[in-house]
């Protein structure tokens, strides 16, 4: 088993904090599972919609949101395993080409929730190249703090769709869980974005 991810310099919890803090009106969809805990730790709030299931659904959820709200910046933050399960959605995003959508894959080369088994990115698969091949032009891979700093503005502000693989350390972390009540998560997000009359 490839162990290289155990020494990647970027820590996922710090990356989440940097992204969430970069723009206070950012709307965030996080995928099953570790990115949910990362963004909850960074600051659980109504403008985050975490997916506790629906594996493979983070990117299309973000796409529907981005198309519905073209004047708001939408960030999908998900893991490599979740992304691989719905990889075709990147082509769907490329065809729609929403300017307000960014996708960041926190790639620790592992299935974190099931015992840290390696995903295909640990050996051969390159998600940024895949995104490029599926038609997303603004793609790249971030491997350290300096690159994250340099790319942050593109993720948060550049014309989308933007795709970045962020290589993060495979490390054991404490669970920081958001509410798992889906109706509550939906309602708090809609109330924040659309106002109380949306309920």
């Amino acid at each position: 088993m490839s162990k290289r991810a155990e020494s990647f310099p970027l820590h996922r919890r710090e990356v989440a904090k940097t992204l969430l803090g970069a723009r206070e009106d950012l709307l965030v969809v996080t995928g099953l599972g570790s990115t949910n805990w990362d963004f909850t730790a960074a600051g659980d709030c109504a403008r985050i919609f975490p997916l506790w299931g629906a594996m493979g659904g983070a990117v299309p959820t973000g796409l529907g949101l981005a198309l519905a709200q073209p004047s708001k910046r939408v960030l999908v933050a998900t893991g490599d395993g979740e992304m691989l399960m719905g990889i075709g959605a990147l082509a769907t995003v490329a065809v729609q080409a929403p300017k307000n959508l960014a996708i960041c894959v926190f790639d620790n080369e592992r299935y974190g929730e099931t015992g840290m088994q390696t995903t295909h990115t640990a050996s051969v698969a390159d998600l940024a190249l895949t995104a490029q091949g599926l038609g997303i032009r603004n793609t790249g891979t971030i491997t350290d703090e300096n690159e994250l700093k340099a790319e942050l503005d593109a993720i948060i502000n550049a014309d989308g769709p933007v795709f970045r693989t962020i290589k993060v350390r495979a490390e054991p972390l404490e669970f920081v869980l958001p509410s798992k009540d889906g109706v509550h998560l939906k309602n708090r997000f809609r109330a924040e974005l659309l106002g109380p009359e949306a309920l």
Partner: peptide, 26 residues
């Protein structure tokens, strides 16, 4: 109408959810 061609039907389920989060019917 934003017509969204999918690579697999399950994308459409999640897209519908995302649209509703943003206040739009899909």
């Amino acid at each position: 109408i934003k017509a969204v061609s999918l690579t697999t039907e399950e994308e459409g389920i999640a897209l519908s959810a995302g649209a509703w989060l943003g206040g739009e019917k899909c």
